[in-house]
């Protein structure tokens, strides 16, 4: 029987855990306070108070410039706020909104009930407009993944690889290293990527379609050259 996510969260907090992604969590009365790492030494009175998981979900929807953030693990969560949450249940909900499935991916990976799905397996099961992603070449995949998923764009650790065996050459080891045990006392919960995201799926489609168009254009040009009107 897998462990309860709330129990695992409580144990991590009791052991001094306080950081996930760009936020820090501190005990506050019988509840918890969350704030952005960038605000760790800012006077709380100068921060915008938030008091619900739903308010944090709305906050996480936009970056500081007002752009939509479809990728919650992008390192551009706005700062300047402090959220007070009354209990563990609301903290769990807030973390699920700020970093969707991060707690679950971490815990299920550790207890062995979740595994990573390779890029090939993900692309090969697609249908409809994304079926074409199965045609991506290994070199295109390497280039796309390492240019899209680096820490400047996404804080998740890339646990899936190309085909179940081939690792990504363009990442530092820490970006793809999977945890084998719960964090040491006080260490952050890593945000694991076990299944590639819709943003990468869409980018892979564009990569393949662009190459196919280029090949088609080249073939047409060669044909026209071989048989001039």
């Amino acid at each position: 029987m897998p462990s309860s996510i709330n129990s695992a969260l409580a144990s991590w907090l009791a052991a001094g855990g306080s950081s996930i992604g760009e936020i820090s969590i501190t005990p506050h009365g019988s509840g918890w306070q969350l704030r952005h790492h960038a605000d760790s030494s800012t006077d709380p009175a100068s921060l915008k108070p938030l008091d619900s998981p739903e308010a944090l979900r709305e906050l996480a929807k936009w970056d500081a410039a007002g752009n939509y953030r479809p990728l919650h693990s992008a390192p551009n969560l706005p700062s300047g706020w402090i959220a007070s949450l009354p209990d563990l249940a609301s903290l769990r909900l807030a973390l699920d909104f700020l970093y969707p499935a991060a707690l679950a991916n971490w815990l299920r990976w550790l207890d062995g009930t979740a595994s990573a799905c390779s890029l090939r397996d993900t692309f090969n099961r697609q249908s409809g407009m994304y079926r074409v992603t199965g045609l991506i070449r290994d070199s295109e995949a390497e280039s796309l993944v390492t240019s899209s998923c680096h820490d400047g764009n996404c804080l998740r650790k890339v646990i899936w690889n190309l085909d179940g065996t081939t690792p990504w050459a363009g990442f530092p080891p820490d970006k793809t290293s999977a945890p084998s045990s719960a964090p040491e006392l006080g260490q952050p919960i890593p945000i694991l990527c076990l299944d590639l995201c819709p943003i990468l799926l869409a980018a892979a489609r564009e990569t393949v379609k662009k190459r196919m168009k280029s090949e088609s254009d080249a073939a047409k040009a060669a044909e026209a050259q071989a048989s001039p009107a």
Binding site: S4, P100, A101, A104, N105, A114, D195
Partner: peptide
């Protein structure tokens, strides 16, 4: 968007 359908099942206790 996140969580994906594959991820959300892991959230279920």
């Amino acid at each position: 968007e996140e969580p994906s359908m594959r991820e959300v099942l892991r959230m279920v206790d």
